[in-house]
Computed example of a mutant assay.
Amino acid sequence: MNNKIDLKIQNGYTLETGSLIDESIATFKKTFLISGVAMILLILLFAIIYGTLFAVFYGFSDFTSTMTQLQTSQSSTTGLLTTVIVTTLTSGFFAPVTAGFIHANHLAKNNQEIGINVFFDFYKSKFFKDIFISFLILGLTTSILNAALVLINLEFLSYIVQSIIGLLTVFTLPLIIYGNQNFENAIIKSVQLFFKQPILIFVALLLAVIGMLLGIFALCIGIIFTFPYYYSMVYAIYNQAIGFEEKSVIDEIGQEEI
Rank of each mutant, 00 (worst) to 15 (best):
M1F: 11
K4I: 06
I5K: 09
D6M: 15
L7Q: 14
K8R: 11
K8Y: 10
I9Q: 13
N11C: 04
G12K: 08
T14M: 06
E16P: 01
L20K: 01
I21E: 07
S24I: 13
I25R: 05
A26R: 10
A26E: 07
V37I: 08
V37S: 12
A38C: 04
I40F: 09
L41C: 02
L42R: 00
I43L: 13
L45G: 13
A47G: 01
I48V: 05
T52E: 06
F54T: 03
A55L: 05
A55I: 02
V56E: 12
F60L: 11
D62R: 09
F63W: 04
T64D: 14
T68V: 15
Q71F: 14
T72F: 13
S75Y: 13
S75L: 01
S76Y: 06
S76L: 01
G79S: 00
L81I: 13
T82K: 12
T83N: 08
V84Q: 05
V86K: 06
G92Y: 07
F94T: 09
A95N: 05
P96Y: 09
V97L: 14
F101C: 10
I102T: 08
H103K: 15
A104F: 09
L107N: 02
N110E: 05
N110T: 13
E113M: 03
I114K: 05
G115I: 03
G115P: 00
I116D: 10
V118T: 13
F119I: 04
F120A: 14
D121V: 11
D121I: 12
F122T: 09
K124L: 13
K126Q: 05
I133A: 12
I133E: 10
G139M: 09
L140C: 12
S143P: 01
A148P: 00
V150P: 00
I152N: 04
N153A: 06
L154P: 00
E155C: 02
F156S: 15
F156N: 13
L157W: 02
L157Y: 03
S158Y: 01
I160K: 00
Q162A: 15
Q162H: 07
I164M: 13
I164E: 12
I165N: 08
T169E: 11
T169F: 11
L173E: 12
L175S: 02
L175N: 08
I176V: 11
Y178T: 12
Q181F: 14
A186V: 04
A186Q: 00
L193K: 02
L193A: 05
L193I: 06
L193T: 00
F194G: 05
I199V: 08
L200K: 05
L205E: 05
L205A: 06
A208Q: 09
A208E: 07
A208D: 02
G211Q: 06
G215H: 08
F217Y: 04
L219I: 14
I224C: 03
F225C: 07
F227D: 10
Y231H: 10
Y231A: 11
S232A: 14
A241R: 03
I242R: 06
K247I: 07
S248V: 12
D251Y: 09
D251S: 09
G254A: 07
Q255M: 14
E257F: 15
